[in-house]
Computed example of a mutant assay.
Amino acid sequence: MSEALHIVCPHCQTTNRVPAAKLQMHPDCGKCGKPLFTGEPVELSADAFQRQIERSDIPVLVDFWAPWCGPCRMMAPAYAQAAQRLEPGVRVAKLNTEEAQAIAARYNIRSIPTLALFRGGQEVARQAGAMDVNGITAWARSNGA
């Protein structure tokens, strides 16, 4: 039997146990029935952010951004493409720093866009500035995603 991973649903925030061998099989949430991976970045609230980074057994890549930020908007399509490439081995998410100012302050986010990679609830890597899809995926993979 393969090892089960904890995967937090991006829709209802329920923690699911998914056998590692079945990650590629498009698993659904046991509670809400929606897909655990959509191939798109997950928009996180402050509560969902904590739950995703603390309870997920897979790495969580977070784009700290704001709606008024030109480089953030410019990078958004590339980040969406990166989600298609990185999932299901990585949860790809976005956190609006205007709506979650306390989290941005706690993680000392000084410029946006900033990508941060979390594993086991801890930040393991950070990169500020807009990147293209190849840069995002290469950076994430080079840091263990």
Score class of each variant (00 low, 15 high):
V18E: 13
A82G: 10
G129W: 07
G39F: 09
E3V: 15
S45T: 15
A130Y: 06
Y79F: 15
Q81W: 00
L23H: 10
N16G: 10
Q24P: 01
L115T: 06
A93G: 05
T15G: 01
P19M: 13
F49W: 08
R55W: 08
R73M: 11
L95T: 06
K31L: 12
P71M: 02
D132Q: 11
L117M: 12
A4C: 07
L115V: 04
P59K: 01
A4D: 15
A78T: 00
L5I: 04
V60I: 07
E43C: 01
R85T: 11
T38E: 12
E98L: 07
V18W: 12
L36S: 08
P19H: 09
G39T: 03
P77M: 06
Q50K: 14
A116V: 15
S2H: 03
A20K: 15
I112D: 09
K31C: 01
V60D: 04
K31Q: 12
S2K: 11
P10E: 11
R126H: 00
C9W: 06
T38A: 13
S2R: 11
S56E: 14
R51H: 11
T14C: 00
T137S: 14
Q84K: 15
L61A: 05
M74R: 14
V18A: 06
N96Q: 08
V124F: 08
L44A: 03
A140I: 09
G30I: 02
L95M: 08
E87I: 03
R17W: 00
Q24F: 04
A80Y: 00
R91D: 01
L61S: 10
K94S: 13
A138H: 13
H6I: 01
V62D: 02
K22D: 15
A100V: 02
L23D: 10
V124N: 01
G30K: 09
L5K: 15
E40L: 12
C72G: 11
P59F: 05
G120W: 08
A21F: 00
L115Q: 07
G30D: 12
I7M: 04
V92F: 04
P35I: 09
T14D: 04
R55K: 14
A66P: 02
G121N: 13
G70N: 04
M131T: 00
A93H: 10
V8H: 11
R110H: 10
N108Y: 02
A80R: 13
W65G: 05
D63I: 02
N143S: 08
